[in-house]
Nucleic acid binder design. Sequence first.
DNA 1: TTAAGTGCAAAATCTTTGCAAATGT
DNA 2: ACATTTGCAAAGATTTTGCACTTAA
Lengths: 137, 137
Amino acid sequence: MPEKAKELLKEHGLRKTFGRQQVLIYFRERSTAVSHGDLCKVFPEMDRAALYRIIQDFEEKGIVHKVPDDEVSVKYAFCASSCTAEEHHDHHLHFKCDACQETYCLPEQETPKIYLPEGFRANSTEVLVHGFCKACA
Amino acid sequence: MPEKAKELLKEHGLRKTFGRQQVLIYFRERSTAVSHGDLCKVFPEMDRAALYRIIQDFEEKGIVHKVPDDEVSVKYAFCASSCTAEEHHDHHLHFKCDACQETYCLPEQETPKIYLPEGFRANSTEVLVHGFCKACA
DNA sequence: TTAAGTGCAAAATCTTTGCAAATGT
DNA sequence: ACATTTGCAAAGATTTTGCACTTAA
């Protein structure tokens, strides 16, 4: 994976713009998932609509992935590795702290093998564990 | 578990109103999760705000549970059994079909044991499996 | 130069809230 | 009769869209 945001954008077929670089760097430096609203607070000078489009482009190109959430809005986190527009490979667990409300990606953990009822075919599995994180426990 | 919607409401400390009975019966008869928007379509004669409040009351009292979703809005499904206002016991899997977009509860399946990094403490686990359901496979 | 991205404004949705009228116990 | 719930209307948030202007390649 390229070190520079610039290269990462290029690699995923996106033009290197100021906004995208800022947001990409922010995602890379975080271990927890953020919503669109969160990003608006982090980048108050950026346009809301532009942020929606940046997130959307990043998700389509495999730079960030959706993290299912039980609050109102979806969250996003930086893709672990090797995700492309064709396929995401973020088969790791997510952990949401009931105290600080942060959602962590836990990439060391593989998703467990799930056995489905007859007739169901699985493509991918999302796991969201609730509890207290290291900082809040 | 009581057979009648009326009794179920009473058991959870909610008054038996027409709207609540309708919605409760609807939830009981479904095997897939629905959003507020879905309910509005099913009950176009009911007030949006009232539906929000019904869902909220049901969730608080342990009649339905939230199902994390990767779309815009949260979904809800009927509680398997014995959930109360104090504690939900819906530790089953959810399955979302990539074709028909329905989210199923898979109550036969126990959630797998998850091993977390040092310092993290789990309370509950939500699993959302993506793939093709029986009807679409 | 020209295809793509941004900023701004407006529309469309979604969610919450307050309060008078209706309903359940 | 009294507390709760509903219906309606308004406000607040969130998300999407269109289009002129700017920027990247």
